[in-house]
């Protein structure tokens, strides 16, 4: 096979490779998003904002103010009754700590190990695409899932918010007022920021997935790592290491709702996610390209 590649006309190689990569990516996306497991995960995620919206609606149906005076629960809950758009922010801050990363952990953990345990990994490797590109395609499809999952939450929250509550001009958390259009733009930016927040964890899940041949074990380990790190991040005694834990800056997306936007923590979050993606992505590559595939 390598003989054939070497003797091929050099000009046609690059487009052929690109075509191959696209082909793998397309088939990866198709396998990911056609699974019942993926669809039901997305369904559960879509249900969360609807539930929050209905709960707030019922609780404040008699004209009482939203949320307890001190503002418990997820952020922005007290503003939801006045502006349905805030349901997007409330839903994202409610799902980001657990639901979203758990779904991503399931998909990422299953990506390689699932194929291995199903016995299909061998056949994937028969295609002359190479392991590196197969891994990149796997990672890309996990990233697409991150974005789709976040957008599903945001879209379902927007729909539920618009149906259950009034919408209109948005008051930023700094107390200034912006138009509904700009509010929507900010909501979009926030959804992207949340999706990007998950990229580091997705790379970690992919790495775990290359370590084992059991899909369930990889998923459990990935979600276990998530929970452990979240607990570590909540311990005040470990203050010194907090800035290096991947969930530490997750909630920084709320800074996009300030006026003017406060970008320091968002930038730090992006840097941290890029670092995790680089470290665990290369670790996954090192493991996957040197692994003996026997099943």
């Amino acid at each position: 096979m390598s003989q054939a590649e070497l003797t091929a006309v050099p000009v046609s190689r690059a487009p052929r490779r690109a075509l191959w990569s696209l082909g793998i990516l397309r088939s990866e996306l198709a396998t990911t998003f056609r699974r019942w497991r993926t669809l039901s995960l997305l369904g559960v995620l879509a249900a969360v904002p609807v539930l929050i919206g209905i709960a707030v609606r019922i609780e404040t149906g008699d004209g009482a103010r939203g949320g307890p005076g001190g503002g418990g629960g997820p952020a922005f809950l007290s503003q939801v009754t006045n502006n349905g758009l805030f349901l997007v922010f409330a839903a994202l801050s409610a799902t980001l700590p657990v639901f979203l990363p758990m779904a991503v952990g399931v998909i990422a953990g299953d990506s390689v190990a699932g194929e291995a345990s199903g016995g299909t990994l061998r056949y994937l490797l028969v295609a002359p695409a190479g392991r590196t590109r197969l891994l990149l395609a796997k990672y890309a499809s996990v990233l697409v899932f991150c974005l789709v999952a976040t957008l599903v939450v945001a879209a379902s929250a927007l729909a539920a918010g618009a149906l259950l509550f009034p919408v209109g001009d948005v008051t930023t958390i700094s107390g200034t007022r912006i138009g509904f259009g700009e509010g929507l733009v900010r909501a979009g930016l926030i959804a992207v920021a949340v999706a990007v927040s998950l990229t580091g964890f997705a790379a970690l899940g992919l790495f775990v997935s290359t370590l084992t041949d059991s899909g369930i074990a990889a998923m459990a380990a990935t979600v276990g790592v998530l929970i452990t790190v979240q607990i570590l991040d909540a311990m005040p005694q470990l203050d010194a290491v907090h800035p290096y834990l991947f969930p530490h800056y997750w909630m920084s997306f709320t800074d996009l709702l300030r006026d003017p936007v406060y970008g320091d923590e968002v930038a730090r979050n992006l840097g941290l996610q890029a670092l995790y993606a680089a470290v665990f992505g290369s670790a996954a590559w090192a493991r996957f390209t040197t692994k003996d595939i026997t099943v």
Partner: peptide, 8 residues
Amino acid sequence: MAPNDSAE
């Protein structure tokens, strides 16, 4: 090199 041959 073909990326696939590294594990063989």
